[in-house]
Design a protein around this nucleic acid. Sequence first.
DNA 1: TTGAAAGCGTTACCAG
DNA 2: CTGGTAACGCTTTCAA
Lengths: 346, 346
Amino acid sequence: MAKTPASKTTPPRMSDVAQLAGVSKMTVSRVLAGRSASESTRARVQRAIDELGYVADAAAGALSSGRSSFVAVLVPSLSSSNFSDTVSGLTAVLEPRGLELLIGDTDYSFDREERLVRQMLRHQPRCIALTGSQHTEATRALLQRSGVPVVEMWDLPAEPIDMSVGFSNVAAAREMVRHLAGKGYRRIGFLGGASELDRRGLDRLKGYQMELKALGLGAPRAVRLGDSPITMSHGGPAMAELLARWPDTQAVMCVSDMSAFGAIMECQRRGMRVPKDIAVAGFGNFEIASCCHPTITTVSVDAYGIGQRTGEAMLGALAAEESEHAGARRAVKTRIHYAVVPRESA
Amino acid sequence: MAKTPASKTTPPRMSDVAQLAGVSKMTVSRVLAGRSASESTRARVQRAIDELGYVADAAAGALSSGRSSFVAVLVPSLSSSNFSDTVSGLTAVLEPRGLELLIGDTDYSFDREERLVRQMLRHQPRCIALTGSQHTEATRALLQRSGVPVVEMWDLPAEPIDMSVGFSNVAAAREMVRHLAGKGYRRIGFLGGASELDRRGLDRLKGYQMELKALGLGAPRAVRLGDSPITMSHGGPAMAELLARWPDTQAVMCVSDMSAFGAIMECQRRGMRVPKDIAVAGFGNFEIASCCHPTITTVSVDAYGIGQRTGEAMLGALAAEESEHAGARRAVKTRIHYAVVPRESA
DNA sequence: TTGAAAGCGTTACCAG
DNA sequence: CTGGTAACGCTTTCAA
């Protein structure tokens, strides 16, 4: 046991509180947990706690009770507003239940995801939320062995680990192509990221390709540039390349509103009118899509809602753990709504 | 898909690993910590670990050793790219040292900050980073009593709790006013949030007012609208109000690039040219400031660097804890650079 | 409603 | 280099 240096006073323990209040440790523990205790006892204990500035040790509690209050969440990027919105939704649902979020940013790396999962598993989280359906084999094995309820978010996995809350990025992209085709555009391009690690981006590209073929709109015109998350800075160069290769393009569908915005800025720089000279569509319904000029036609996805639904799925799993001792829990698969939002740009 | 009910077996413990490897628990513990062990022993232990899928329990380790591997960080908003960049910078410095981030979003509420500090303190974090210099009395007391090294970020507190890494938002705002005045603008307005809780925003307003007076540029023209973080959606309405009240305004300084962007969009909607008819400046040097059209004149702040410096300050404090038993640590105060970046909009 | 004892799974400490 | 033993601070369990 490490001993505190002579200079530092040891922080108060539950036994100190008990002594000051003139009760046993157990009574303090019960008061803290909000369980049965007479009013007078409760008051005395609370006063002792305040006086000493006592803060219970979560590690000791977790070890003793066999359960932590952690829930782990892994997102590919915290700086993407859609994922931080998802985290907010999760927080809103879980925090009132006394659960704490252990947030991790995988930076679109599956190896990093694996490392983070391993690390977080050490804290015995009650549940784990991952983004996407693609993971390393080791990650899957770790998760499976741990027995911790898992939610995969932002996609509908063909081979889910456990629960999932998401939508088909392929289908959503196809719907956008249909929207553009419905507007009369025939020569439609696509701007996306170059990374093979962003499965949701790849699925949108795939949806674009599939629907192009289904509608007989000719060969794909796809430019892929930059690492995920592809941002507004990538949109401009990507648009430039697209126009260089296929100058007669009539509409461009982008993997996200960020790249769409960058693409539109590039058009403005060239004196091209959007959508008159070329139409541009985004994905995600980020704030910028409704704020910029022209406003951006996009696919709205309820990112915050994904977080909420994920939280609810977790609470359900935890409740099931409580009741059914032979936890034959039903795997929850929640489909999230999306919709094409027609605006000025396409 | 349901989890296999039969897999309700207890996860493996260190003693299980020890038994399988034919060594003692202590040896397993040492191998895990990367301490002295013969090569053959190490190999056997590692094989046992892999075979069993053993994951060490962090709570037990923390309890036993008296130290966790957590570092707590509280930011006002995870969805603001500047703060998520700061978190990235912190991660980059701390993760290689085996420290894990406990991230909290205070949502610009001091009460929430207090609640989160209390909660995180239960996990015995090695260090805590807060955003800003304003906190509840209870928060200060909690922190003080805990003895945990604290870093206040994004500001230079007059009464620091412990260490700090930031810059003067007042001075930065004054510099921007001087820049605008230097460009010949005399009637300069300000757009900011309405919340009294965003101290950094208030400081920028204060700097604006001070420099206006110092330069004899007349009465302030400030519009305050919306809760922090003030986003692009607030910029438009705020600009509209400013123009309604002071139609002859020549330049507008915004509390952030987000609001500046919204303001510029509003100008475009009205057919006003930026900066010809009215100049607009932002703050923060967010990505959008260099991507949009016109590009936005702003104050660049190295948000990622704030995270890095904070992490380094923490490592310094931890090293000092190790060596000096009489923990008379010197309070570190790191000043972060900022600079006006002249672009097209002003 | 309250208390005493027995761990929880790990690491510190000291022997060997 | 390795192993036994004793905590760590709390909650569970059972008794009063």
